[in-house]
């Protein structure tokens, strides 16, 4: 079983986690329908390095992981706050 390095709990079996999808920003309120539909329904399905939300179920803890979808290798993780501080906050 794969191991996920959790920023709060350290390395754990991947079965303790669930994936919340790629990190995306809400489109601006004045976006057109097409933009909104793209946000709601379409996934990028990138073959490469992506950043995803992950949830550690026993601690109800959301964090961000950087993963290479080609190798399934987890390259880096951030606590949510650190990630947003580095890459911009949602408001």
């Amino acid at each position: 079983m794969k191991i996920m390095p959790c920023p709060l709990n350290g390395p754990r079996n991947i079965s303790e986690f669930s994936c919340g999808g790629e990190v995306e920003h809400l489109p601006p309120p004045d976006c057109d329908h097409a933009q909104w539909i793209d946000y709601v329904y379409l996934e990028n399905n990138t073959a490469g390095i992506i950043r995803e939300w992950w949830y550690h179920t026993p601690t109800a803890y959301w964090f961000v992981a950087e993963r290479d979808t080609r190798t399934d290798e987890i390259l880096r993780t951030w606590p949510a706050g650190d990630f947003l501080a580095e890459f911009g906050e949602e408001r």
């Binding site: 919340g20 939300w53 949830y55 109800a60 959301w62 949510a80 706050g81 947003l84 906050e89 949602e90 408001r91």
Partner: peptide, 20 residues
């Protein structure tokens, strides 16, 4: 519902605590 609320507030950072 709990997971969803935590997910959004991980991003919104509102001054609110959510407990199940």
């Amino acid at each position: 519902v709990y997971q969803e609320m935590l997910f959004w507030n991980a991003q919104w950072r509102l001054r609110v605590d959510i407990t199940n």
